[in-house]
């Protein structure tokens, strides 16, 4: 526990080193599933090259919010989103925006590792292929290898790139999914409880990776684990019953929260 706290303070301390740039902004975001309202007037900004953690009890709307950021909610028929969400100051719900292009810029890693039933190579090459990011086979191979390296998986799988991705362990599968997302060169990576299906060792590995990725990407992570939010994020947003309760720098949230609900939640009094 001690070590974690040290790491946390160290990471949190680094936040001030760069001027902060608002990468994505949510303003008055309301989401309805049919008659049921899932999010109420959420205003939340995502800063560049930072990890923003979304925490809160189950059903609080944090997954709903993260799925608004790359319009994954479009796939749900009864879901309606209102309000404004911008990426680099452009409304992503503008009819002129191509959702396919948006999702290439805002990648996503899911709760349960979901590698395609293809080889490891094909899994990573999938995105670059559909977006035509490489002109020839060598370039494609280069993208695949770099992505796997960035995801910290390359050393483990370099001898079996053409074996099935589904044959990897859970933690490796999740890192494969991260490599797959990186291969498209997104600007923002959304992670919806990326470690909830992993054991502690694999979780530690993925958390380390998230911290490394912050250098080049903007990351939003939904998590149920307070410690994880404290370890990997620089900003934390607390959701409750569809409302954004509080958002602040992670160490403020965890040491001196403004809102009593946040206080109760992070100290484990409910949730």
């Amino acid at each position: 526990m001690n070590m974690m706290t040290e790491a946390e303070t160290k990471m949190a301390g680094e936040t001030d080193s760069k001027p902060l740039n608002k990468k994505m902004q949510g303003e008055k975001v309301n989401v309805h599933y049919g008659d049921k309202q899932a999010l109420f007037d959420v205003d939340l900004d995502i800063y560049e090259n930072q990890v923003t953690a979304l925490i809160g009890p189950s059903g609080c709307g944090k997954s709903t919010f993260i799925r608004c950021l790359n319009r994954m909610n479009d796939t749900i028929d009864i879901c309606r989103v209102s309000g404004e969400i911008t990426l680099d100051n452009r409304d992503i719900y503008d009819p002129d925006i191509d959702v396919v292009d948006l999702r290439a810029r805002v990648g996503m890693v899911f709760q349960k590792p979901n590698p395609f039933p293809k080889s490891i190579f094909e899994n990573v090459a999938y995105g670059p292929r559909i977006h035509g990011l490489s002109r020839n086979k060598t370039e494609l191979e280069e993208i695949v290898v770099t992505s796997l390296q960035k995801a910290g998986l390359y050393e483990e799988v370099k001898d079996r790139l053409h074996e099935a991705g589904t044959g990897l362990s859970g933690g490796q599968q999740q890192r494969l999914c991260i490599a797959r997302a990186i291969a498209v060169s997104p600007e923002v990576i959304l992670m919806d409880e990326p470690c909830s299906a992993l054991d502690p060792i694999a979780t530690a590995r993925v958390e380390e990776l998230i911290d490394e990725l912050r250098e080049n990407y903007t990351i939003v992570i939904v998590t149920h684990s307070m410690q994880q939010a404290a370890r990997v994020s620089q900003r934390t947003a607390m959701f409750h019953l569809g409302y954004l309760v509080e958002v602040d720098e992670t160490d403020t949230i965890f040491t001196n929260p403004n809102n009593p609900k946040t206080q109760d939640y992070i100290t484990g009094r409910y949730g």
Binding site: N70, M72, T75, V100, D101, L102, R103, A104, R105, G107, M108, V109, F110, K112, N114, P115, F116, P117, Y126, G127, I130, H131, C177, R180, A181, V184
Partner: peptide
């Protein structure tokens, strides 16, 4: 469904 979402999340149509 997670495979479809995974693919859509990568910007596939």
């Amino acid at each position: 469904q997670s495979l479809r979402e995974g693919s859509a999340g990568l910007g596939a149509t």
